[in-house]
Design a binder for these strands. Structure first.
Lengths: 129, 129
DNA sequence: TTTAATAATGATAATTATTATCATTATCAT
DNA sequence: ATGATAATGATAATAATTATCATTATTAAA
């Protein structure tokens, strides 16, 4: 197989994701990294997001619309606001090892993702409903 | 607002989803319902999937590629096979009320979805890795 | 250090999934 | 029956993502 070669574009994408705590789309990341490397192409962002995810360095969060990304891979959970569609971190401890929950199951569980849905604090306070 | 009017296309989409235990894409459902209503259009399937989901009659499962759908809305969880990309049901009991996990959280949680990743029983037994 | 091999890039075309449009048809309350 | 309008099928449009391809950058070895 091919060996990975370093690139400042990839480094910048990873650095951007690791420096922020929201959950940007590929487009969001493209715009942010463009400030540092004006010549970067959107395709390069997509390419590197896929690569970084397969390396386990970032997380892809499927959402029904544009995928979102997370530069922090330690176990934590998310809430999708059904009002503003933002994805925010939730710092909770499930108390049990969720990965070991499926008992009478003939397959193998390697990981899980837990997504909560509801109203984020911002939308709840600035309540216009 | 507009009042819902019945249609055999919508009934057929719902019936199809409720009769099966896999997690088909819109395309899969389109092909299946086409056997019963040959004139049905893919757009009609998408329209009704969206409508049925907003009615709470079915579930949409975002997956990073094509969305999948589930005709069974009682609380249960899923595993995405990282080998064959199938989504299968997992009959497990988390033991705790996951929706009440986020404690010091200023928003509101209305629901959650828990997705496991790993190898499904089929891929594990017919192991060519 | 050149050089050779090839991974990565930027630009853009192509593809895929999904949604919007619109003329026609079906449903339903009167 | 009829009028109002929701739903349909066909298809165009859009949005997100991936593929292509000529050029550039990185790296290991000469």
């Amino acid at each position: 197989m091919s060996t990975l070669k370093s690139s400042k574009q990839r480094d910048a994408v990873l650095a951007n994701l690791q420096s922020r705590y929201d959950h940007p789309t590929a487009e969001d990341i493209f715009l942010a990294v463009k400030e540092v490397i004006p010549s970067i192409s959107l395709a390069t962002v997509y390419r590197n997001l896929k690569l970084l995810e397969s390396e386990g360095l970032i997380l892809k969060i499927p959402t029904g619309d544009s995928d979102r990304f997370d530069g922090h891979t330690h176990g934590h959970y998310h809430l999708t606001c059904i009002n503003c569609r933002q994805v925010i971190d939730l710092d909770i401890d499930p108390g049990v090892n969720l990965d070991s929950l499926p008992r009478d199951f003939d397959g193998t569980v390697t990981s899980h993702s837990l997504m909560f849905y509801g109203i984020c604090p911002d939308c709840k306070s600035s309540n216009k409903k």
